[in-house]
Nucleic acid binder design. Structure first.
Lengths: 137, 137
DNA sequence: TTGCTTAATAAGAAAAATTACTCTTTACAA
DNA sequence: TTGTAAAGAGTAATTTTTCTTATTAAGCAA
């Protein structure tokens, strides 16, 4: 990988992500920053998010309702994702059994570098709303 | 959800996915079908893939190298994803402990409808290629 | 069966999200 | 200070979703 040079924009993007627990999207970052950095390009946000996740400084969560979401926490942990409102919540890690990774590596010859584990469903708020809608129909 | 009507295009899309184990992308499906169905629209492929996965007839795997991939197998199972070549491989299910789902549901009030579990890394072929590249540099 | 009704489906265009590319600016080492 | 390559802005291209209008599948009545 190429040398990584210091950059004001990247520092600011990272600071912003570190300060929130909302698992931001690229556009959220852009909207938050564009007043302070008027010349900021959305492409720059995307490029730096990609770079930061490749450097394992932040982490990709996955595409939720059409937008990639990111996570300041790189240590292994699971996520809950609400299918209705798009909420992302950190959960304590659900480690794949060490035996499982070992077996896959041996059987198929893989190098396993990481894992992602997401539960999907309805969050508490959306659960209530769905119940209301049922009653009304 | 709305009533689902029979449709020639959707049947053909589903048949195609059932016949392969390559975890296709929308564009792969489109490329395979466009000769047989000259008027086929890429939008139709996307709409039907979305609908089939909402009906739980196929399953979304996730975005890999910029493209969403799909899986004919809807029963719970894990995936291995190669970060270098984009290979997707089915693995036997790594069930989240029933206790884990139960605990999340109770603690946060979630309704957990499903889970996705992916191992990421290098497949056997890419492992060899990376080794070669190391030797050459 | 035949024709009518309606709502799902399709095509095509447009919008949105993301990535790639080109050219300019800038960080940093020699 | 200067040479270099990384980083940025802006634009274009790609992938995916959404919207509009026309078509068509399927239930119902005659």
């Amino acid at each position: 990988m190429a040398i990584v040079r210091r950059s004001e924009k990247r520092d600011a993007i990272l600071r912003l992500i570190q300060q929130t627990d909302c698992h931001p999207s690229a556009d959220w970052v852009y909207q938050q920053m564009k007043d302070t950095y008027p010349g900021l390009s959305l492409g720059t946000v995307y490029r730096n998010l990609k770079q930061l996740s490749e450097l394992n400084i932040i982490r990709r969560v996955g595409v939720i309702q059409g937008q990639e979401r990111f996570d300041r926490e790189t240590r292994p942990h699971a996520h809950f994702i609400c299918n209705r409102c798009g909420l992302v919540l950190d959960l304590p890690d659900q480690e794949p059994g060490q035996g499982f990774v070992q077996a896959c590596s041996e059987q198929y010859g893989f190098v396993v570098e990481g894992h992602e584990f997401n539960l999907c469903g309805l969050c508490a708020d959306c659960k209530k709303i769905m119940k209301l809608e049922e009653l009304q129909s």
